[in-house]
Simulated assay, not measured.
Amino acid sequence: MSGGGGDPLDGFDTTIHAPHRLRVCALLEGAGEAEFALVQNQLGLSASALSKHVTVLMDAGYVAQRKAVRDTRQRVWLRLTRRGRAAYQGHLAALRAIVKPSDPAP
């Protein structure tokens, strides 16, 4: 995570940068909270592959899960934590800084 006013590249986060984890964060930021099965369907991942990526994000403190029984089945909802949202926003700022032209055309 990047502190205020520093180099935007300080926000580059290798945990988030992996393509599937980046997509998970993007989806959750837009949705607020999403059921595991919806995230799996949207990203086209197997349950085991998504679970591995979510575990990495949870271990970093970026994603939280909520479990509940719905329609007699155990369901899992995912959401970005405050820390995860800040890390994701910092990572996006770093990516923008990387791809921004260093010498803009007149």
Rank of each mutant, 00 (worst) to 15 (best):
A64K: 14
S2H: 11
H53I: 00
L80Y: 06
G11M: 06
C25I: 01
L50S: 09
G90Q: 00
R96I: 04
G61W: 02
M1P: 10
R66Y: 06
A26F: 07
R79C: 11
R75S: 07
G84V: 00
Q74C: 03
L80I: 00
G90K: 03
L57V: 02
D10L: 08
D13S: 14
C25R: 11
Q65S: 11
E29A: 07
V54T: 07
Q40P: 02
Q40G: 04
H20S: 12
V99Y: 15
P101G: 09
A18T: 11
T81Y: 03
V99R: 13
V56I: 06
L27W: 13
S102P: 01
T81L: 04
G84M: 03
L28F: 06
G3Y: 11
Y62E: 02
V54Q: 06
L22Q: 14
A87C: 06
I98F: 07
L80Q: 05
P104D: 04
H53W: 01
T15W: 02
A86L: 11
E29D: 14
T81W: 03
P101Q: 10
R75W: 04
G4V: 09
R66I: 05
R83M: 03
G44V: 03
L27I: 07
A87R: 05
E35S: 08
A86R: 13
D7L: 02
A93Q: 12
L92E: 13
A87V: 01
A34G: 10
G5E: 09
H20W: 07
P19H: 11
Q65I: 00
A18S: 09
K100Q: 15
L80T: 03
Y88W: 12
L92F: 00
Q42T: 10
R73M: 06
V56S: 08
L78Y: 09
D7N: 13
E29P: 00
D7E: 10
G5D: 10
I16A: 05
Y62H: 06
F12A: 10
P8F: 04
R85P: 01
G44C: 07
P19D: 14
